[in-house]
Simulated scan of single mutants.
Amino acid sequence: MGNMSRSSAPSQRQLRVGELIRRTLSEVLARGDVHDPELNRMSITVGEVRTSPDLRVATAFVLPLGGQGAEDALAALRRNRGELRRMVSKKLTLKFSPELRFAIDETFDRMDETRRLLAQDAVQRDLAGHGDDGD
């Protein structure tokens, strides 16, 4: 009966829980609450958290400062998944705590890539010599 296309968009509840998890993870990482010196040395941005429709899985899209050491950051987060999950579940008022998954936030890369391509495009136009000089 329901319109199928709607089900693909996240519900308000998914968005709310995702944002709460994002904020909690950001705070925990910023404060260095996890007992892992290697993780605490990293500056990791949590760009977005997406939850599954049943809220049982939360995927955090993260990026280390400057985009360097992404694999190390993922490894450190995954190593501390249990502790991070406990800290998140304390903040959430859910019956169960979602399983945390971590992925690299590709949107930053895409933005840089787009900028690079635009710059390249402008350069190509200049080299071709028919840039608009008449202003």
Rank of each mutant, 00 (worst) to 15 (best):
E38I: 04
G67L: 02
D36P: 06
V62Q: 03
G47P: 08
R50G: 12
D33C: 15
N40R: 02
S52W: 05
V46W: 00
A60P: 00
N40I: 03
D36Y: 04
R56S: 13
R50K: 15
D33Y: 14
G67Q: 03
S43W: 07
G67F: 06
G47H: 13
A60H: 00
R56Y: 11
L55K: 01
L65Q: 12
R41Q: 07
M42I: 03
G66T: 06
S43N: 12
V49P: 00
L39H: 05
F61Q: 05
N40V: 02
G66D: 07
L55G: 03
E48T: 08
G47N: 12
D36Q: 10
E38Q: 09
L63D: 08
F61V: 09
L65P: 08
L39E: 01
P64H: 05
D33Q: 13
V34N: 10
E48A: 10
T51M: 10
L65A: 15
V62T: 08
R50F: 13
N40C: 05
P64K: 01
T59K: 06
M42A: 07
V34Y: 07
R41P: 00
M42N: 02
G67Y: 02
A58Q: 04
R41D: 04
A58M: 06
P64Q: 03
V57A: 11
T59R: 07
P64M: 06
D33R: 11
P64E: 04
R50V: 13
I44E: 00
A60F: 00
P37E: 15
H35Y: 14
V49N: 02
D36W: 05
D54Q: 07
V57G: 14
G67N: 04
P37T: 11
S43V: 14
G66R: 04
P37D: 14
V49Y: 00
V62C: 09
L39M: 11
I44S: 00
V57R: 06
E48S: 10
N40H: 03
H35W: 13
D36I: 04
G47R: 09
R50P: 06
V49M: 06
L63T: 10
A58P: 02
V49A: 03
L65V: 12
R56Q: 11
H35R: 12
P64N: 07
T59W: 06
T45Y: 15
P53R: 07
D33V: 15
A58T: 05
E48I: 09
L55W: 03
L39V: 08
V49W: 01
P37R: 13
L39Q: 02
V49I: 07
D36L: 07
I44W: 00
H35S: 12
M42Q: 04
V34C: 11
S52M: 10
L65I: 14
M42V: 03
S52T: 12
M42D: 01
